[in-house]
């Protein structure tokens, strides 16, 4: 008979490094409100969540980020992450909005926004991120009804970031099919971390730790498209030390965002 805990809850503080908040244009998401998000966080033992606005990804970062702030209101468990489009947004205005909202991380979407992640496109923004100590999240892909599953070019990531050792970049939503390129990339560039909401490959956690240690791995859920618990369950069943578990579940995201979970 299998032995199993059917009422699993995490036993460390949890900071979800990959959640969206708000409505999408192309479908009705399962949860699109603060109340619904907090309810799922309570049910699954997630303390805080880093959230971005889907509208900022799909249509307009300025409006999306504004909607995000208005939606969050004064809820201190939801930490805003701003979307950016380096090919359209004015960096001075964007910087002001980031400072005004005390935002410490941004999310960019090169395939979705149809630009190469190359120095001649994003160089100025990486200068700014470095100078302001802003961490940059880059999802491998972001699908909408008008944008299919075109993934980011790993060579562009490598060639651009190898000359940017002081910019913190988090490759988000890495998945099993990305294994052949993500592993050499993170071994090659120590300023790259990974967010693991879609990382379900066999022994995936141990493989990452063996490659880069426990300081560059961030728990994330991809909520509300995906639930918050399964990857937490996996992390709690990987024979991790208490400090590794705490760092992956929250500590590493705390360090990048400057926000403590408790």
């Amino acid at each position: 008979m299998g032995k199993v805990d059917l009422n699993f809850m995490p036993n460390v503080p949890v900071f979800d490094a990959n959640a969206a908040l708000g409505r999408r244009h192309d479908k009705r998401v399962n949860v699109d409100t603060v109340e619904g998000t907090i309810a799922e966080m309570d049910r699954t033992g997630v303390t805080k969540a880093l959230v971005y606005a889907p509208h900022g990804a799909a249509y307009d970062s300025t409006e999306g980020n504004q909607i995000l702030l208005e939606t969050i209101g004064n809820n201190d468990r939801l930490i805003p992450q701003f979307c950016a489009n380096p090919t359209f947004d004015k960096i001075d205005d964007f910087s002001k909005s980031v400072n005004s909202a005390n935002v410490k991380t941004i999310r960019i979407f090169p395939p979705l926004h149809n630009y190469p992640f190359a120095e001649w496109v994003v160089g100025e923004w990486l200068d700014w991120a470095e100078s302001e100590n802003i961490a940059v999240w880059i999802p491998v892909n972001y699908e909408t009804n008008w944008h299919g599953a075109l993934d980011i070019d790993p060579t562009q990531l490598h060639d651009t970031l190898k000359n940017r050792p002081n910019v913190n970049v988090i490759i988000s939503e890495i998945k099993y099919a990305d294994f052949p390129w993500i592993m050499p990339l993170i071994r090659s560039l120590p300023n790259i971390s990974v967010e693991i909401s879609r990382w379900v490959i066999i022994d995936g956690i141990q493989r990452l730790i063996n490659a880069i240690g426990d300081q560059r791995i961030l728990f994330g859920s991809r909520f509300p498209d995906s639930p918050m618990s399964p990857q937490l369950y996996n992390l709690h069943h990987n024979d991790l030390s208490d400090s590794s578990l705490k760092d992956i579940c929250a500590g590493n995201t705390e360090r990048l965002t400057g926000v403590k979970v408790s």
């Binding site: 199993v4 099993y176 379900v200 490959i201 066999i202 990857q231 937490l232």
Partner: peptide
């Protein structure tokens, strides 16, 4: 895929 993610 890993058993742990799927059973979770």
């Amino acid at each position: 895929m890993d058993y742990r993610n799927q059973i979770a």
